[in-house]
Design a protein around this nucleic acid. Structure first.
Lengths: 158, 158
DNA sequence: ACACCTTCGTTCGAATTTGAACAACAGGAG
DNA sequence: CTCCTGTTGTTCAAATTCGAACGAAGGTGT
């Protein structure tokens, strides 16, 4: 009876995992944000845009595709791409096969900015997360959170 | 030579862990945000404020202490507590031992809101994260990210 | 060709977040 | 006591975020 009406609360271990996840995520974001801003005047989100573009064929991606990779809203991406465009790091290019489509493309200046920003960022990610964990912990994290992400992606657009 | 100038980039396993962490975090936040907003009109941040208050002795915490637990800025907390105060879920109380101090205290209405909101929230956290992972994965996550959080806390205020 | 439904990216207003600046106070060294 | 340094919470302007609404275009079935 009670098991049907009462929710299954988190036991101490589960709670520790959940709180650890939330707290680590917040603290990390905060720290990376600060470092990137001071170091090269970029927000973490802007940095990630550059990263995803540089990893894409032709250093360019459709707006929607990029928004999906970043896990952000379309309007949020529109805003940030506009900012990066003003800074000369990204350019918009219209899509040949679809008049509605817009490509965000990394400029030479954007590539150079990324080349300059990446080392410090990666070093910090390493110091704060990667090098704190063992190889086994990293593997578990990758597999577990990969699965979590995959399932979340599926629920999004069924 | 090059090892001194070239940063240690992330190998595929490390990258998978890092991307998994960032992506899962974003997707989860997004999803929880949506659910809480629809379900009871609260943001995730506001919900967490209620949670931390209800877990504190006397259902109340100093503003600074609460901001630390939430991992947010003091000004951000001031804003959100004001919102919750307007909604009648939280009340401000001045501190007896320190004139500058302000306690945020959970009201009866706030307790009731939390009682109503918690089941749905916990169920979703379970569905999207906890129940997706094995007991071992959860343990690794708790320990690993707990350590990451602990180290980040130390750097914050040296 | 036509209606119909979906997709694309942007715009808009509202809500939120942040860091810096601030005033008021606490606490300790001298 | 008196300066000096650090803390506390708020205010402020600026930047960012989101969802809903939108116009425009793609794609499909008839």
């Amino acid at each position: 009876m009670s098991s049907l009406n009462e929710p299954r609360w988190l036991d101490p271990d589960e709670m520790a995992a959940w709180r650890g996840f939330v707290t680590a995520s917040n603290l990390l974001n905060r720290r990376l944000e600060r470092q990137l801003k001071e170091d090269c005047g970029l927000s973490h989100q802007q940095y990630e845009i550059l990263v995803h573009l540089s990893a894409a064929p032709g250093d360019s991606l459709r707006m929607t595709e990029l928004a999906d990779k970043l896990v952000t809203s379309k309007s949020g991406l529109t805003y940030q791409v506009t900012q990066l465009e003003r800074a000369g790091l990204v350019a918009r290019r219209s899509c040949p096969s679809d008049v509605r489509g817009v490509f965000a493309e990394l400029t030479d200046q954007g590539r150079e900015m990324l080349r300059q920003a990446a080392p410090g960022h990666v070093a910090l990610v390493r110091e704060l997360l990667i090098d704190v964990l063992t190889r086994e912990q990293l593997a578990v994290l990758a597999e577990g959170l990969g699965e979590v992400s995959a399932r979340l992606r599926l629920d999004e657009t069924p």
